[in-house]
Design a protein around this nucleic acid. Structure first.
Lengths: 337, 337
DNA sequence: ATTAAAAATGTAATGGATTACATTTGTGTT
DNA sequence: AACACAAATGTAATCCATTACATTTTTAAT
């Protein structure tokens, strides 16, 4: 890579010292107006750009934050990152999104960037690192987990209350008169899956509805899984009358499967999604779903991260934001409320 | 940010000079085995990580590549980035994805990272920079445009042949017996939109089918635009019998609008999408569409970028990859072929 | 005009690693 | 044993910008 102009050359051309140029670059009030103009003149004339590697090395700070994610096509991801971006911009941080393609090595490499000083902090979605690794990294670096949570000390997390959200969803179906309610989940490994399952179970228990193993099915979060699992449900001797899916994509696959069998939604079977992504309004019928405050999750995560990167009183807490149930066409109109 | 261990301390602890430690870090063959072990011992014992800011400054190279995009939720984006990632990994580059939220300032800031030495190269999707700006940046830095193309010297581009792809799509509809073919486009500003429009027009001309202004409509790339524009088409006194959409999302919106009016697809109206995203198989009916080789577009873009970052014979060419027409349920079965 | 204080600028150390060049250690040859 | 040469290691310059501290210039007060 070719050399570009340095602060020395600027100083020379402007007939001042490097210190003065540096002060101009950093808006120091100690520079006389006339001098400032002279220096800025040279800077503009030659389109000088300070080498930020030099600056960052000196300051031991990069103003960069990594967003580590297993994949870019998680439907809620884009909105979350928008929230992160906006909060970051307020304090002048760069946001760099790094997909790991679900490779643990890649994730470790990215976390190394904290140790090797290439980034000041990390926001992570569903990390594969172990509790020990996260805790250890958290001691010396700032890490915020978003949405998906691995318990670890010296770490914090921003998410909705997944257990309660699932509870609310299932209660809604019960309120509509359903008692034959299936659960279609995403990855069984995810902590959120367990929590949502717990919420599902609690809602049934509270209404004295028996829990039936054969109505609980896990797959991926995508629509193919939804189609496949819904087909399985429909082949049961005793199929459910409502299906709660842990993602909108799954719900759409589910809807397709149900309609292909000739049933109508919500008349024969009610379906609920999760996340309230744009997919929920793309499907027909549109999906009743649980809204996640995506933008705010991102904004809050970044806010917490900035706090921990800059303030001495680190916060290692779990922040829970409010979810919301959104009624659309895939569940019957609620006459009681 | 707290100081961490430096190469000096390692050298001291190992009883050697910093040069030797550096040689060990960089796998130099000039180090005696016994010395190497001694140094590695200290490195492991104290979990020393070299400060890459120091290294990068000295080498004037960061091994980082920026992927600048207006948004993260472009449906073809995730697969393209996977291709970029895989090629990057082969040569040890970091891939950092940077969304601009469509803000020109933000984009400029990110391109500045080339000048400020924070990144070695950029792959950009539909840049908003002017031809002059791109050309100027291209002189001293490596820039590859992907999919969307602004003409500029010292720049290269990897994409499909949009004109031909649209031509093929429309010809397909003509082959199926259609002559009343509408065009629903994305942003009118995009270069690809113009090219696809040209291909549409050429196909009609070649088959002596008149071009009708009222059947050409532009909006966003999303499904809402598709619904709205399709509604407009259906209200015409003389509506089309086939609709070619410039994205799968638009096509899905279109499909919903058509079915809401009580028409069936493809019996009453045929619909084609573009991109072959997962949405194309999520909709029902599934979409006939133009497949973009997304992974390969990314892989090739990164390949070209690496070439231009490392080799003296820069390539400033346009690489065109093959597209493919994929038949699904939204167009009638082709009996002639 | 003199002097103290404030403002502006400059000098040089610093951040951490790499590497050209210098020096020491080791090996082999006669 | 002496010398040539190779191998291993060390010293110090370098990458570029920031900043503590030193120095010079300006302003204000007497």
């Amino acid at each position: 890579m070719q050399k570009s102009m340095t602060i020395q050359e600027v100083a020379q051309l402007a007939g001042v010292s490097v210190a003065t140029v540096s002060r101009v670059l950093n808006d120091s009030p100690l520079v006389k107006e006339k001098t400032r103009e002279k220096v800025l003149g040279v800077i503009q004339k030659f389109d000088y750009q300070p080498n930020l590697l030099g600056r960052d090395l000196r300051r031991l700070e990069t103003m960069k934050v990594l967003v580590v994610t297993p994949s870019l096509d998680i439907p809620i991801f884009a909105d979350i990152v928008k929230g992160i971006e906006d909060r970051a911009k307020e304090d002048g941080y760069y946001v760099l999104v790094c997909p790991t393609s679900n490779h643990l090595d890649r994730e470790k490499e990215l976390f190394q960037m904290l140790k090797t000083r290439l980034a000041d902090g990390v926001i992570t979605f569903s990390s594969k690192l172990s509790e020990e690794e996260l805790s250890e990294l958290g001691q010396r670096n700032s890490i915020v987990q978003c949405c998906e949570f691995t318990y670890a000390s010296h770490t914090c997390c921003v998410s909705i209350n997944d257990e309660q959200a699932a509870f609310d969803a299932v209660r809604h179906l019960i309120t509509l008169g359903h008692s034959r309610i299936a659960l279609l989940g995403g990855s069984e490994l995810a902590h959120s899956t367990r929590l949502r399952h717990d919420g599902y179970k609690r809602a049934l228990e509270q209404h004295h509805i028996p829990y039936r193993e054969e109505w609980i099915k896990y797959g991926d979060y995508d629509h193919h899984a939804g189609t496949r699992l819904a087909d399985e449900l429909l082949q049961l001797a005793d199929p459910p009358s409502a299906i709660f899916c842990m993602s909108d994509s799954t719900a759409i696959g589910c809807v397709n499967a149900i309609r292909n069998k000739g049933y109508t939604i919500p008349h024969n079977i009610a379906v609920m999604g999760f996340d309230n992504t744009r997919e929920a309004t793309m499907s027909s019928p549109t999906l009743t779903t649980i809204h996640q405050p995506k933008y705010n999750l991102g904004y809050t995560a970044m806010d917490l991260l900035i706090h921990n990167m800059t303030q001495p009183d680190k916060k290692y807490e779990n922040v829970t934001l409010a979810h919301r149930l959104i009624e659309r066409e895939s569940t019957p109109v609620n006459r009681k409320e």
